[in-house]
Write a protein that binds this DNA or RNA. Sequence first.
DNA 1: CCCATAATGTGAATAATATCACATTGTTAA
DNA 2: TTAACAATGTGATATTATTCACATTATGGG
Lengths: 210, 210
Amino acid sequence: MKFAKIPMATINRLSIYMRTLQDLLEEEMDVISSERLAKQCGVNPAQIRKDLAYFGEFGVRGVGYRVSDLINQIKEILGLNRNWNLAMVGLGNLGSAMIRHGNFIKHGYIFTSAFDVDPQKVGKRLPNGLIINHVDELEEIVKEREAHIGIIATPASAAQSVANQLVLGGINGILNFAPVQIQVPDCCHVENVDFTIKLDCIAYHLSSGG
Amino acid sequence: MKFAKIPMATINRLSIYMRTLQDLLEEEMDVISSERLAKQCGVNPAQIRKDLAYFGEFGVRGVGYRVSDLINQIKEILGLNRNWNLAMVGLGNLGSAMIRHGNFIKHGYIFTSAFDVDPQKVGKRLPNGLIINHVDELEEIVKEREAHIGIIATPASAAQSVANQLVLGGINGILNFAPVQIQVPDCCHVENVDFTIKLDCIAYHLSSGG
DNA sequence: CCCATAATGTGAATAATATCACATTGTTAA
DNA sequence: TTAACAATGTGATATTATTCACATTATGGG
Ligand SMILES: NC(=O)c1ccc[n+]([C@@H]2O[C@H](COP(=O)([O-])OP(=O)(O)OC[C@H]3O[C@@H](n4cnc5c(N)ncnc54)[C@H](O)[C@@H]3O)[C@@H](O)[C@H]2O)c1
Ligand SMILES: NC(=O)c1ccc[n+]([C@@H]2O[C@H](COP(=O)([O-])OP(=O)(O)OC[C@H]3O[C@@H](n4cnc5c(N)ncnc54)[C@H](O)[C@@H]3O)[C@@H](O)[C@H]2O)c1
């Protein structure tokens, strides 16, 4: 099963399973069935088993999954048994909110650099101790601090240019909050987050009696 | 075509098309082909035509789509030719960042109430003029201010209880930022936003040579 | 030791989604 | 007027994802 092509949706769900399993671990639950986990994650039990089957056999028939083992297996699959260094670009409302947020570090995501163009912001120290650098220094600093993932939290108009600089800095993964489609070489993986799309989706459902 | 079941994915894409079309309008482009629009949105041209075909015929054969017309059509489809009132619950990092963000109002999303439990925050005035109310008053105030959509930006532990209160307040659409699956009656539509999942997804791609 | 039980892992069936390919139809210019 | 063109709208096809259904296999009690 190891080298089938893995559906994107599976990867997303693994992340959800892991989060739920971590909650379960805190509640001292040490074994769980796909049925109960599925209910808690809002998916079909067979889905969970299928998703896991892409990567191996992690359960015990007649019993279920050992919670802490499964967490470790999923971490291994997703590549989360290590830390990832993040470069934040754009320290406005959203960028600042994320840097202040404590949960990323818990999951092994560490902000090691931060960039803006605003001269008012460049040179300031953030709550986590980081100093904001000018975006012109991005390529250099990103290499120096071994950033793995870039986060674009600038206005849409700057997003493509920031993406270009991140790529030059050797970054192969980008989380983009700007509401535009950015163009990058194939070696670079982009994930987009756009809240407004989600709101539009809710509006649609409210409008058409869904 | 009007009453086929519409794929969720189609609704999401319509929102993206609209955003791109609005950019094109600013660049004074008044007609666009599905091919060019598709490139800009990163999808297949036939996809765009199929998505639109669920709702009618909006193009001109041999020519393409009139940009401003198509924007209006999509707004009509998604229910965006009106305003939607938002209730923000949890004025921490993320909730505050969203309220400060100017783009929501441009798209017809208006914050009409804001709630927290923290006595330090309750009573404070936000940059947009709103006063933060105590979450105990949620049900009442949400009804009074005719909120349509609730946004949950509290810690995960409070999310379900907030969701319950929103539903009691008559709200049928929820945007949930807390990393838990909330349970609501069928009449209520929930969309989840979880950045950490997106980061995990990038980590996976970086790890497995994608 | 063996049987009843419970829950996994998975092939087959189904459902959902995306793409192709082309007939159709407005447009423009000779 | 009409022919050449361009891009839509859509049935057919291909691909991808989800769910079903059950054979398989650990476990624990009698
Ligand atoms: N805040 C939200 O709730 C929200 C919601 C949806 C989408 N977004 C999107 O997220 C992005 C950020 O939103 P925000 O509210 O934080 O915006 P913001 O205006 O508060 O912050 C943008 C920051 O980027 C900086 N910047 C501009 N150009 C830059 C460049 N070339 N290099 C580096 N930094 C640059 C600005 O100086 C500013 O500090 C925007 O694209 C926005 O559309 C935000
Ligand atoms: N900020 C981020 O970058 C980020 C990223 C990913 C996920 N999230 C999620 O978004 C949510 C909010 O994140 P944050 O960083 O803004 O957290 P935060 O701790 O800064 O803010 C949470 C706010 O909710 C309030 N609150 C707590 N219980 C409440 C209740 N019952 N009713 C109303 N208000 C209540 C708190 O007083 C606080 O003001 C969390 O669930 C978090 O996991 C945030």
